[in-house]
Design a protein around this nucleic acid. Structure first.
Lengths: 262, 262
DNA sequence: GAGTGGTCTAGACCACTGT
DNA sequence: CAGTGGTCTAGACCACTCC
């Protein structure tokens, strides 16, 4: 015997999947639904919560409950790494015009708003392990927030770590006000003679912390994609460790793997 | 003024993060918590639900509420594709011993249980678009469920599509009882003369449907990773389209991108 | 049987939104 | 202002697990 709230949820889910309720449609008020199904309001709310957790509906306080529209996904391809490497040796003007994020999203540079914050931190066990340096090593922590000028929600939150002694040769690299740097991170690293050899990216998903949920403006119940990017240079050193937190409901990560020919 | 359930959740979250409550610890019963915080049981339940949605706690009916232990992640690397391609021309005995999943997880072949189900279907708009064939084209749909012999929950659910006419040259490929095929999908394709050139993988995250949640045994509130894998052969055809649904709380996807040297 | 979480009721009042 | 969802109460009974 299924619970009452499950039967209500099933009813509404079926209606949405069958298209009787379309994206953007408003559902009847909770009191109306309670009346229609002969149940109390909290029971109806339980059903609506289940549907919200499945991403099918969205509640707007004071307005109503709506069938959700899919947000247009923000794409990010691993081809961006080779693309960015090729640009390292292009002219500064060319580099300034378009960065990897513009390349991924198809937006122009002036449609993007980037906020960068730098500070020096001591490496914790996690990041120290990724770099293969002792815990406590001085790192430059760079936090980025990239968003479309027309929206308030960012595409994602990026925290990148560099070993300070490795990049100290160019003082500009320690200065957040130089952002956005023409050509991006690979051009920054090239300014101290570093050439990348490969990039490893680890992808997992988890529920957002309340802080992340607020900053990314993700509706409750949706999860975030977490991407740990580790960059290696041509002599095998780890030169950059970055964590990206991306809203799961609007992010699409594309990875292309080329195979050797026979 | 924060809601009462938020203050209770904050209290418990802080205790968990600070280590006063450790993974595996049992929380006081809901009635006890209600008493301690001077609130009603439903309010306490609201707080616990928030923590469960964050993945911090786990409720077990009739037993209690526990601080969650991290499940050991199942890893999957894109290096598996080259690895599998190299094995295509190895001896059948060698191929039978270890497949790509064993390679990823570090498990032996006899620790894995694979269930395969085949059927013929007409291509819907989505898959037809991925293949670049007309809607309604006859496809072979192959559903796989791979799990560790010691656990009931699978690593993930895989649905792979092949164009029937492309593989009909080898009748064994239409027969689910030939699974597991030594060497995996690439060896199957090679038996009709297909050599892979590259693999594209699209990763997104979303809440599971109730059906997926049941089959993957994911706790409510956690999301799934969805991976759409498209394989291209050396003449540029799409030869395989596969959808993987992976539990977000135990899956780690690793992608390595090699860059051209200067 | 005792203790746990799961479901449900029938209200109450508050906070937010658009008119 | 009226209507919406958000929070909260003080209980009730059920289903599950362990002893």
């Amino acid at each position: 015997m299924a619970a009452a709230y499950e039967r209500i949820a099933d009813d509404l889910r079926t209606a949405i999947r069958a298209g009787r309720l379309r994206p953007g449609d408003r559902l009847p008020a909770e009191t109306k639904l309670a009346e229609r199904f002969g149940r109390s309001v909290p029971t109806v709310r339980e059903a609506l919560r289940a549907l919200r957790d499945e991403g099918l509906i969205e509640k707007r306080h004071g307005i109503g409950t709506f069938v959700r529209c899919r947000r247009t996904p923000a794409r990010r391809s691993n081809l961006r790494h080779q693309w960015e490497k090729d640009r390292v040796r292009a002219s500064p003007e060319q580099r300034a015009r378009t960065g990897a994020t513009e390349h991924d999203t198809g937006l122009e540079a002036d449609e993007l708003v980037i906020r960068a914050r730098y500070r020096e931190v001591a490496a914790d066990a996690d990041v120290a392990g990724a770099f293969g340096v002792p815990e406590g090593t001085t790192l430059l922590e760079r936090r980025f927030r990239t968003r479309c000028a027309a929206e308030s929600a960012p595409f994602g939150l990026t925290t990148s770590y560099l070993v300070r002694d490795m990049i100290a040769g160019n003082p500009d690299l320690l200065d957040a006000s130089k952002e956005p740097w023409p050509g991006g991170s690979q051009s920054q690293l090239y300014s101290v003679g570093i050439e990348l050899d490969r990039v490893e990216e680890r992808v997992t998903a988890r529920p957002p912390t309340p802080e992340e949920a607020a900053e990314l403006e993700v509706p409750p119940g949706t999860s975030v994609l977490v991407l740990r990017k580790v960059s290696y240079d041509v002599v095998g050193r780890v030169v950059d460790v970055a964590d990206l937190v991306l809203p799961g409901d609007r992010t699409e990560l594309l990875f292309t793997t080329s195979l050797e020919r026979w």
